Amino acid sequence: MLDVRRLHLLKTVAARGSIAAAAQSLALSAGAVSQQLSALRRDVGVDLLRPEGRTVALTEAGRVLLGHAERILAAVEEAETAVAAVRGTVGATATLAALPSTVARIVAPALEDLGARHPRLTVTCLVTDQAQLRELTLGAVDVVLGQRYHHLPAATPRGVEVTPLLDDPLLVVTAGADPRPVNLRELATHDLVLPPPATDCGQAVLHACQQVGFTPTARYLTADIAAQLTLARAGLGTALVPRTAIDPATPGIGTAPIEDHPILRLIFAATRRTGTANPTTTAVIEALRAAAGSGRTGGLPSA
């Protein structure tokens, strides 16, 4: 009989591209992963992986087995979820992946709420802006707090359930008192503090500005929101920062909405799709939803 844990290793190696990368993501040694994959190869009697430079690739048999492995692993999770739903209690552990810009206004309040409501639940939080949904599909995390800018088409991986939480506008950030609402075209004459164009936020800003007739030129280029706010506070430039990433008590800055062409990101919670709701991930999502709702500050601009 095939070992489910070995099937999970095969899936992880296929996604990560190498045994070393898979081992690192699973906190295992490369030797341990190789040993288990060798055992899986003996179980099926055919090679599943072949070397490809510094990486590995699936053989034809490996691709066939991976397709079955994904269905088997999904069925195992479905069974675990169904039993947890019958038990009706929140579990002991969960892993959350969240964007850095959501930590202060959403993640921290949500974790405080979970600690009060479910003191036996330990939530491990991975703060990253890299490939959260892939980590979800691989089973490395249980819940993702992610983002999607509204100008981009929705692209949800197979087997992932997305719960929208909040439309979060980018605000114009400058030094001093709160300025008046601005039209996006006005920023063509500003010294801008922008995220790199390769980032989701940078792409959203570039797309929005081009829609109103200009290509923004960054005087300062950084994805670090703390650095963006520092440069704006010093009067060195005008930043565009998501509202939830700004502490409203921060001294020395003014924020203003973009009046005519708001740039919005959807903040969402994502889990693996199962036929039965998991009490643990449901509790985490409900806490994130409550924190996102309480973090609203005034009305949202219309899209």
Results as ranks from 00 to 15, higher is better:
L99G: 11
L121Y: 06
L121Q: 09
D167V: 08
I246Y: 09
T102Q: 05
D200S: 12
G275R: 13
T124D: 14
T274F: 03
G237H: 04
Q35R: 15
V4R: 15
A79F: 04
V13I: 11
V86F: 11
P242Q: 13
R272C: 10
R180W: 09
A277S: 10
R54V: 10
V173I: 02
S101E: 14
G298Y: 08
P169N: 06
H8M: 03
V284N: 07
R41I: 07
A155D: 13
R6K: 15
L66M: 11
A23R: 14
V56A: 08
D191K: 00
L49E: 03
S18D: 03
L28V: 04
A234C: 02
D224C: 08
V143M: 05
Q36N: 14
V205H: 04
P179H: 12
T297H: 15
V90D: 11
A104L: 11
P248E: 05
S25D: 13
T137W: 08
H190S: 08
H151F: 15
G159D: 09
F214Q: 01
V13S: 01
V193G: 10
G62E: 03
Q210M: 08
T137M: 12
D224A: 07
S29K: 01
L206V: 05
V46Q: 13
A22L: 08
P181A: 12
G252V: 04
T297P: 02
T189F: 01
D3K: 11
A22C: 08
P196E: 08
R42P: 00
R148E: 08
A69R: 11
D47N: 12
G31P: 01
A98E: 06
P100T: 02
T250A: 10
A75Y: 12
I225V: 14
T156W: 09
S302K: 13
G67R: 11
L7M: 13
P242I: 12
H8G: 15
L187E: 01
A108Q: 09
T122K: 05
Q228F: 09
T271W: 01
R158Y: 07
Q35I: 02
A20W: 07
C125K: 08
R87D: 15
P157V: 06
L66G: 03
A303P: 15
T244W: 01
L73I: 14
T122M: 12
P262R: 07
L73T: 13
V90I: 06
V103G: 04
C209M: 00
L165Y: 09
L111T: 05
A249S: 09
A188G: 03
L126C: 00
A234Q: 12
T250G: 00
A269Y: 00
V76D: 13
G298W: 13
G295Q: 10
L111H: 14
D200G: 15
P216C: 03
A32I: 02
V103Q: 12
S18L: 08
L66T: 10
R158N: 06
E70G: 06
V103W: 04
L206M: 07
P301K: 04
V123A: 06
A303G: 01
L48N: 08
F214E: 05
R265H: 06
T199S: 15
P216G: 04
A79I: 09
I246F: 12
T274A: 11
R134Q: 15
A175T: 05
R6Y: 14
E286Q: 15
L111G: 03
G67V: 10
A303C: 11
H261P: 00
V123P: 12
H8F: 05
A175D: 02
G88A: 14
A116D: 13
L133D: 03
